[in-house]
Amino acid sequence: MSSLVNATLGHRPFNRLLIAVAGGTGMRSLARYAMGFAEPGAAVRLVSIVGNPRVLFPTLPLSYSDWHDAHVESIRVNEAALAEAKKDIEGPNLAPETELLDLSVHGSRAAQVLGEAVQQWDATLVAIAAHPRATAGGWGERLDPEDVAAMVGVPVLYVPSENLKSDVAAPSRVLVAVDGSETAMRALCAALEAVPHGAMWRVVFVVDSVLHMHGWPDDVLTRDGRRTLDRAAAFLKAYGRTGDTELIDTSADARDVHAAIALDADRWGAQLLVMGTRGRRAATRWLLGSVAERTLRSASRPVLACPPVDVAVGGAE
């Protein structure tokens, strides 16, 4: 089945895993969780991003003693976090690489610097963590998941930092949102290959009531959804996974597609949400579809987001 997926959907095995955090925070827990998605024998690189103090005061020289000392201490903390995580996951057949990305040297935003590192190392999966925007501090090193997904051009496994306060268990309930696109199907198959056996699966297709144009019979809008779910069910069966599929729609409680997916995930108790980053729906940004962008921005649980095949193969420009 794996060879069929690779040939038809362009899925690349998760055999080069890049794990990145800002400021070293959560690296150990994120590394443990992300390793559960990597193929046996995968190459692993741990990356920590150090902020640039001049983001706060652009005219202040980096040589200014107080800022210089704080910057040096930040580098030390990041290096210690990398060393701890490396020691925690390394083994006889795994020798993780480590890399420190100092924004005061690179002079770019965190997502852009990480995107360049991903392409240079040819990662096939990027795992990141980020603090809630309301509490995020630091020197401009925050990794916004929607920005990272738009930059790196490969699947992104995003784990909100509040999920990393303790070790995160492998997901046992996986919700996949599909929209009829090959991108969504690729995301489903990537998750089916990466998530360990034993998890329960649920695949949903959301019918947006806004698209119920006057004079259109409802079955015109639901027919594609049912065909898509039938195809998803066939993938579940082929991979030997247990799960169900369901056609859901927007409502007073969930007025748009993003809200309907989030509500269903909450009600079902999903521990991982899987989706494509651009499908058939109109995009509000150049690369990310509006549903994927909003899901990543407001996620309260881990999200695996896969880009279109053309972007994944060629990389983000």
Rank of each mutant, 00 (worst) to 15 (best):
R278D: 05
A123D: 01
T245H: 04
L62M: 12
A42F: 00
V203R: 00
R133F: 07
V113G: 00
S251H: 07
A38R: 10
V21H: 02
L143P: 03
P145M: 05
K165V: 09
D179Q: 05
A80R: 15
N52K: 00
S63Y: 10
V113I: 13
W139E: 01
M27K: 05
S290T: 14
R109F: 12
W216G: 00
D244Q: 10
I49S: 04
A83H: 07
L236N: 04
A260K: 02
T8H: 12
L296C: 09
R202V: 03
L164T: 01
S209H: 04
R255N: 04
G91S: 14
A259P: 00
A199T: 08
D249T: 11
H68F: 11
A123Y: 03
L296N: 02
S172L: 11
A111M: 02
A38D: 07
A283P: 12
R278H: 15
L287S: 10
L288N: 09
P145R: 08
L143H: 04
L175G: 02
L175N: 03
K86F: 00
V220S: 06
A233S: 14
V195S: 04
A190E: 10
W121K: 12
A149I: 06
S3N: 08
V311M: 12
I19M: 08
D219Q: 13
A199P: 11
Y64R: 08
K237V: 05
A43P: 01
T242D: 13
P155G: 08
S29I: 00
S63T: 15
A316N: 09
A34L: 11
S48L: 07
D244W: 02
P132F: 07
A260Y: 10
L30W: 09
S251A: 13
P217H: 13
H106W: 06
L125K: 11
A187I: 06
C189Y: 00
A283V: 06
E146T: 06
L229H: 07
D66T: 13
L273E: 07
A95V: 11
A81Q: 09
V257N: 00
L60M: 15
S166E: 12
L157G: 06
L236W: 06
K86E: 12
R142N: 01
T183G: 15
M35V: 00
Q120F: 01
T295S: 15
D244R: 10
V21C: 12
H106S: 02
